[in-house]
Structure formats: structure tokens, C-alpha cells
């Protein structure tokens, strides 16, 4: 199981995905709640945790980075939509 950043999909985000023709990227994760899972390498995970100290890596349950500030998630989400790809963390972390 690879490390991911879970971006939970509310209506606003789902609309953006639909407009970009990316709605199929969202997968059902929890009792019908949709999520997109942005993959991270081990190094990227360490950098994310260093740059955003409130974030936590849930190593036990989901192997995902959680509790990133919403505006950070929005930026990652916007990059996914712009690049039409989940593979955005390298680009995202260039700014930090």
C-alpha cells in the first residue's frame, strides 16, 4: 500500500472534477464518501510533514497524510485538476 494524501470530495470539488472530465478519479472510500488519493513517495511524505507541522502520517490505519490545512489541500487538488493527473507532489513541493 503506497502513501497517499486523501483529498475528500465535497460538492464544490466534485463539480470541478466533473468539469475537467475527471470525475472517475474520485473513488468511494468511506460509506459512500468520495476521495482522491494523491500518491507520495517516502521522501515527499517526510518533506510534507516537515513543511506542514500540523499534518500527521497515519501509519497504522490508512498510510495516509492527514490534517493538512484546507488551503494546502485546495492547492494540491487544483494541481490535480490542472495537470489531469494524480502525480503532482513533485511539482507541488517545488514551491517549498
Amino acid at each position: 500500500m503506497s502513501i497517499t494524501i486523501n483529498i475528500w470530495i465535497n460538492e464544490e470539488r466534485y463539480e470541478k472534477l466533473q468539469k475537467a472530465g475527471l470525475a472517475s478519479m474520485a473513488e468511494e472510500a468511506l460509506a459512500g464518501l468520495k476521495v482522491i488519493k494523491v500518491p507520495c513517495t517516502e521522501e515527499q511524505k517526510d518533506k510534507v510533514l516537515k513543511v506542514f507541522p500540523t499534518a500527521k502520517y497515519d501509519s497504522a490505519t490508512t498510510r495516509s497524510i492527514e490534517l493538512l490545512p484546507r488551503e494546502v489541500k485546495d492547492k494540491i487538488f487544483d494541481l490535480v485538476v490542472e495537470k489531469q493527473s494524480m502525480d503532482v507532489m513533485e511539482d507541488f513541493l517545488k514551491n517549498y
Binding site: 486523501n6 475528500w8 472510500a29 464518501l33 497515519d58 490505519t61 490508512t62 490534517l67 484546507r70
Partner: peptide, 23 residues
């Protein structure tokens, strides 16, 4: 199975998303 932890739920709420009532 779909696991959920307190951390995961916090993350959902922090994203401004209302989790399903079953959760």
C-alpha cells in the same frame, strides 16, 4: 472493509466535508 480513525475523520472535517451519518 473501510477503516476509519479519529485522525481520518478530523481530516475530512478539516476539508470542509460532512461525513456520512453512518460514520
Amino acid at each position: 472493509s473501510q477503516n476509519f480513525s479519529g485522525t481520518l475523520i478530523r481530516s475530512i472535517i478539516q476539508d470542509g466535508v460532512k461525513p456520512p451519518r453512518l460514520i
